[in-house]
């Protein structure tokens, strides 16, 4: 098994080895599933968290576990309600660290408005896990006004982004301390439901698709959209917000910010007539001030993501593939 940094390798793993056994063919692969109940729709998600280092500027694994799960629910248009967590502890993990992470989970749960209602704990031998893994499952209630699916995405729809990209991935990379680069950066991990709720209020009928661009970044999330919806996504290269610190680090490291992971941003596709209202609503929510339109859906003979710039033509934005290999000679 290859790495799980998101992107093509992960996609191949899931589509090739996992999905065929558990899902009916043709099922749209999302981060969240819906279960119909009398009187409503229940959203369910499961997630596992493995991060190195476990504590980083702006957050820690416990906080990530809560926000990540709550945000997957939010991306399903659901208000997060409750979650359970399984802890896998490596023998030898300092108890202070465990306590600190439990406190972090509780704080994050409170902020995100979800209850932690249960869980399980397993201790594995020293050397059989990397300190602490957290696996979570969460449920939420889907807002009755939304109908989210890549299949509803149409040419002309607008692509919105909640704020600057790349903060989390670059923060983690630098926090490992292996690269002697310092930057005033913190992870963007945060609950997204308040922003999504505002979006639903303002634009529910025109809201087609939501996704938090975590592993593999914006490029991977939009490539999946292009494939699932069979459309071309065209980005305006100059409109994508990236903090100068992230841009600078990417420059030095030779990375593309579009491939960097985020934990507190999301992409939304909305019908054109709702785009302005949606943006206005997002910008009024604390933390939504830099929400912006970054592109549009176009009729496409082939499902690709393109970035158009004023000078220099149109680039194809591929999913993250792995090694940063040079193409030019």
């Amino acid at each position: 098994l290859a790495h799980g940094a998101g992107g093509k390798a992960s996609r191949r793993l899931i589509e090739g080895l996992i999905a065929p056994y558990v899902f009916e063919s043709g099922t749209e692969l999302r981060d969240v599933a819906e279960v119909a109940l009398a009187g409503g729709r229940l959203a369910m998600t499961a997630d596992a968290f493995v991060v190195k280092p476990r504590v980083f500027p702006g957050g820690s694994i416990g906080e990530l576990a809560v926000n990540g799960t709550a945000n997957d629910l939010a991306m399903g248009g659901a208000r997060p309600l409750a979650l359970v967590a399984t802890l896998i502890l490596e023998a030898g993990l300092p108890t202070e660290e465990l306590e600190r992470e439990m406190a972090a989970m509780a704080r994050a749960a409170e902020r995100a408005g979800v209850a932690i209602v249960g869980g399980d704990t397993k201790v594995v031998e020293h050397g059989k896990a990397d300190g602490l893994y957290i696996s979570t499952a969460g449920i939420g209630l889907v807002d009755p006004r939304v109908d989210l699916s890549a299949k509803r995405v149409r040419p002309g729809d607008q692509v919105l982004l909640s704020g600057p990209i790349g903060d989390h991935g670059i923060t983690i990379l630098l926090a490992r301390g292996e690269i002697e680069l310092e930057a005033e950066l913190t992870s963007d991990t945060r609950p997204l439901w308040p922003l999504v709720e505002a979006l639903i209020e303002a634009a529910a009928p025109g809201l087609r698709w939501l996704r938090d661009p975590t592993r593999g970044g914006v490029a991977t999330a939009l490539n999946e959209l292009a494939r699932d919806a069979r459309v071309t996504v065209v980005l305006d290269d100059e409109a994508i917000p990236v903090r100068p610190e992230v841009r600078g680090a990417c420059e030095i490291l030779g990375l593309d910010p579009l491939h960097i992971a985020n934990e507190g941003q999301f992409l939304a596709v909305v019908a054109p007539e709702y785009a302005d209202a949606a943006l206005e609503a997002l910008r009024r929510v604390p933390g939504g001030a830099s929400a912006v339109r970054i592109g549009a859906i176009e009729e496409g003979a082939r499902p690709v993501v393109l970035a158009r710039s004023r000078y220099g033509g149109t680039r194809v934005i591929d999913m993250l593939v792995g090694d940063p290999l040079p193409r030019i000679c």
């Binding site: 690269i179 090694d323 940063p324 040079p326």
Partner: peptide
């Protein structure tokens, strides 16, 4: 400023390609 940063990066196999080329 960039030199030590890059120097710390070059031995990270997952971030850096290996090359032996005339160009």
């Amino acid at each position: 400023t960039a030199l030590p940063i890059l120097a710390s990066l070059v031995e990270r196999r997952e971030l850096v390609a290996e090359a032996g080329t005339c160009g």
